[in-house]
Design a protein around this nucleic acid. Structure first.
Length: 875
RNA sequence: GGGAGUUUAGCUCAGCUGGUUUAGAGCAUCUGCCUUACAAGCAGAGGGUCGGGGGUUCGAAUCCCUCAACUCCCACCA
């Protein structure tokens, strides 16, 4: 078999993915095994894979694949989110490009277009995930708006309504004038914006005096219904109790009220009150029974309530009004001002606070068990710091605005009766029954009822995800939900901790009395190597599929894993993909080496091979243990690094070099067998990180029956580890390194053998002498009592070694090196002695620590003595 | 305004409950090698007063205080 000396991932990745799918290795059904479940954070149905998804899904896949190999019944449920507002915006834009306006369509027509769009673009992202190697159970793919999930959502809505937890009412909400819908608090992002502070004159009625009011939004004067002063403000002490002022330009007379809410320090200490367009003003309006004048149309233009600036956009109006105020002499001054303005998370336009009729969900009660679960670690957050963030939000939770003035989504199952009032029911039939009952009119027809026009917030379906994917809302007693729920790990970004994580926990306790998952692993944000967020505008976001094409899925996965640690942002650098690809190549070539060996089964196992096998057995066991510990504490990057260095440094650079037979000589059967065994175990341990190459090699290294797969291969259980053996081997490594250094310093090629002399003591790893002879390419190892003039010496721990030189060595250089070493050792010894001569240390520190210091002291002294001897010999 | 986090080698980060050296890794750099698995490689080397200052301790990168810089979250005084 001729194997390329470069690993070509593209040639094997698709092949194995198909193999896995065909054989349903990722498919899970309940059985007697313990389950391990992850539900995917559903990406937007029409979205494209970006680097955040790559990170997030690589992590999930690593966790799932490892669980599967540990013999658990692993189930990773994939799916997509209908992403109400985002998808509707895309469909509206697409229609607009075809000259179709949404307002010209009926709801049914629009939804037809939307579903068409979904069928065409939906699920691309799930196909992309396969390229990454994601081992999802695709048979279970769900959509937040498919029939099952929708039924569940409606059932929950009705249930919460009946429990009195969902109510309808007029409230001040965040209004998105572009998407024409209300938003929840969480969908608003505040950004610092450069604005102006306008000082306006409000003339006092029946007087020449005026009050100066500072505002950032002069256009809202159209809706002013009062001016408010602080009662303690001495500047306004002489303003009469029942004073009234004229709204500039508008000429409306409004009262001057007094409330301590007003900050004396800010602006002029006088506040204009616009109850329809500011949350705080709204509260003042409630308190003082002020009139509420809504001056905006839904799209942010001025309506005809006041009769001025009608139809003008709010920002245009601001400019024009500034000019008009100026001309009317009502503008005192304008200052530059930086303030925080809320923007719609989805459409990016400035939010307009708006008074409107919406559906809300009371959160106070439902949040209680959810708060407790996290604080008491029933659900563990990794990293823990997010517990604080979570607690703070939960303890100050506000009611959730769940209605959206959109069409793409689950329509609110409330039906209005012709003569007022409404009923809530999961189906129109049920609604009709209730309506007849409520109205006392048995002849009421379905056509008499009018269903609420609004749909539900997308998160009102995704908060049920861990339950609804197992149909646990509609059929709470089904086998699947009982088996898979609670799920194990959730991997997601901290940016949706409130949107999604917190609400899922609430739903979990409300509908299953159990948490939805046991652990939440929060990833960081993927940034570029300069630390900037990835964005389309900057063009700094690589195309994940392009990366996979170039470096292989395994390579990109390794790149993601190398730079991630829970909760910390990661600086992604394409160089990491290169490193990942190179690692794959390294594995590939190690395999080429081993697979190319001829075997002679009659040949006895050489001593150095026997010792190497013994050593690597322990090395492998220790790494496996370390990796387990890393996984247990979600240090996934460290888990990979452990395997990376085990394979590259210990297995390739040491083990394979030791057992490698002479050119064109066969290897003995036993060593080959044990080496294949190691290789196989290494592949199994690394499989969660690099699923494709490990499967390829796992099959190539041994005869495998049909339908066998590394995906289901049980990972080795780590055994007893001989720590002393491993430590003594590092002494050997140091000796070899020193010999290599001497070769390099004296330009002695590796193929030229050397003699080695040593003054043997307990720190000479003589049990590995056969290895030393081979790796050092030594012709002999001789025990002596001292070195000679022509020898170049070195010391490992306390043992002195000498390499006889044919020609004279650079004594000055040698002496300088030995002296530097001596200086370091003396300094070190001093620091040890400082402790040991300190009575408080000797008496105060634990015995083990003190003993360690004594050991350091004697080692150091021995080494110093050896160094002095060698320096003496140099003279 | 409130809170959280970060600061260790040129870069990215480990360093977990204070004691394995006078601080580690990977990448990058430098030197020598196309040695028969791998130049996507091998062998070796250099590089840090652990953000500044103070304190606790026999002992501090690690604990406490303080200052500084950066990042994020929450709140939203017009």
């Amino acid at each position: 078999m001729q194997l390329s000396d470069k690993y070509q991932p593209q040639e094997i990745e698709d092949k194995w993915y198909e193999y896995w799918i065909e054989n349903k290795f990722f498919h899970s059904t309940p059985d007697s095994r313990q389950p391990y479940t992850i539900v995917i954070p559903p990406p937007n149905v029409t979205g494209m894979l970006h680097m955040g998804h790559m990170l997030n899904n690589t992590l999930q896949d690593v966790l799932v694949r490892r669980a599967r190999q540990k013999g658990l019944n692993a189930c990773w449920v994939p799916g997509t989110d209908h992403a109400s507002i985002a998808t509707e915006a895309k469909v509206v834009a697409k229609l607009a490009s075809e000259g179709i306006q949404k307002k010209d369509l009926t709801r049914e027509e629009f939804l037809r277009h939307a579903w068409e769009w979904k069928e065409k673009h939906g699920g691309i992202i799930l196909k992309q995930l396969r390229k990454l190697g994601a081992s999802c159970d695709w048979d279970r793919t769900c959509f937040t708006m498919d029939d099952t999930r929708t039924e569940g959502v409606l059932k929950v809505f009705c249930d919460l309504y009946e429990k009195g937890k969902i109510y309808r009412g007029v409230r001040m909400v965040h209004w998105d004038p572009k998407a024409l819908t209300a938003l929840s608090d969480e969908e608003v992002v505040y950004k610092e914006s450069q604005g102006k502070l306008y000082y306006l004159r409000y003339m006092l009625e029946g007087s020449d005096r005026y009050l100066v009011v500072a505002t950032t939004r002069p256009e809202t004067i159209l809706g002013d219904t009062a001016v408010c002063l602080n009662p303690k403000d001495p500047r306004y002490a002489d303003i009469p109790e029942n004073a009234r002022v004229m709204v500039p330009l508008v000429g409306r007379s409004i009262p001057v009220i007094r409330d301590e809410y007003v900050d004396i320090e800010f602006g002029t200490g006088a506040l204009k009150v616009t109850p329809a367009h500011d949350v705080n003003d709204y509260m003042l309006g409630e308190k003082y029974g002020l009139e509420t004048i809504d001056i905006f149309n839904d799209n942010g233009t001025i309506n005809d309530k006041v009769g001025l600036y009608v139809g003008m956009d709010r920002f245009e109006c601001r400019r024009v009004i500034e000019n008009d105020l100026q001309n009317a002499g009502l503008l005192e001054k304008v200052e530059a001002y930086t303030n925080n303005v809320g923007y719609s998370e989805r459409t990016g336009v400035a939010i307009e606070p708006k008074l409107s009729m919406q559906w809300f969900m009371s959160m106070k009660e439902i949040s209680k068990p959810a708060t407790k679960a996290v604080l008491e670690d029933v659900i563990k957050f990794v990293p823990e710091k997010y517990k604080n963030t979570y607690r703070h939000w939960m303890e100050n939770i506000k009611d959730w605005c769940i209605s959206r003035q959109l069409w793409w989504g689950q329509r609110i199952p409330a039906y209005y009766l012709p003569k007022g009032g409404y009923v809530v029911a999961p189906t129109s039939e049920e609604a009709l029954r209730l309506a007849r009952e409520k109205s006392g009119n048995p002849n009421l027809a379905l056509s008499d009822l009018r269903q609420d026009e609004d749909v539900l917030d997308t998160w009102f379906s995704s908060w049920l995800w861990p339950i609804s994917v197992f149909d646990g809302i509609r059929n709470p007693d089904n086998e699947e939900i009982k088996y898979y729920y609670p799920t194990n790990d959730l991997v997601t970004g901290p940016d949706i901790i409130f949107f999604w994580v917190a609400r899922m926990i609430m739903a979990g306790y409300e509908y299953r009395q159990l948490p939805p998952f046991r652990n939440v692993y929060f990833t960081g944000i993927v940034r570029d190597k300069l630390g900037r967020k990835m964005s389309k505008q900057l063009g700094n976001s690589p195309d994940p599929l392009e990366l996979i094409k170039q470096y292989g899925a395994d390579g990109v996965r390794v790149a993601m894993m190398l730079c991630t640690s829970a909760g910390n942002d990661l600086m992604f650098d394409e160089a990491l993909c290169e490193q990942g690809r190179n690692f794959g190549n390294k594995i590939w070539n190690a395999f080429r080496l081993v697979s190319g060996w001829q075997v002679d089964k009659t040949k006895p196992q050489p001593e150095e091979c026997r010792k190497a096998v013994e050593w690597f057995t322990h090395k492998l066991n220790r790494a496996a243990l370390e990796m387990n510990a890393n996984f247990d504490s979600y240090r996934l990057s460290d888990a990979l690094k452990t395997m990376y260095s085990l394979f590259w440094d210990d297995f390739s650079a040491w083990y394979l070099e030791i057992i490698k037979p002479q050119y064109q000589c066969p290897i003995d059967g036993r060593t080959l067998e044990e080496t294949k065994n190691f290789f196989e175990k290494l592949m199994e341990l690394m499989h969660p990180f690099m699923p494709f190459i490990t499967e390829e090699i796992w099959h190539a290294i041994r005869e495998r029956g049909e339908k066998q797969t590394i995906v289901l291969a049980r990972q080795m259980e780590a055994e007893q580890i001989d720590v002393t053996l491993l430590e003594r081997f590092t002494l050997l490594e140091e000796v070899v390194t020193n010999i290599r250094n001497i070769r390099k310093q004296n330009n002695i090629p590796q193929r030229e053998s050397l003699r080695l002399k040593l003054i043997s003591d307990e720190n000479y790893p003589e049990e590995f002498e056969s290895i030393l002879l081979k790796i050092g390419n030594l012709s002999s190892i001789e025990r002596v009592s001292q070195g000679e003039t022509l020898d170049q010496g070195f010391i490992v721990k306390t043992t002195q070694y000498f390499v006889p030189q044919s020609q004279s060595v650079d004594k000055e250089k040698l002496r300088a090196e030995l002296e530097a070493d001596l200086k370091y050792q003396e300094g070190f010894l001093r620091s040890v002695m400082a402790k040991l001569t300190n009575e408080r240390f000797v008496n105060g520190a634990p015995k083990a620590v003190v003993d360690k210091e004594y050991a350091k002291k004697s080692d150091s002294e021995a080494k110093i003595a050896a160094l002095r001897e060698q320096l003496e010999a140099l003279k």
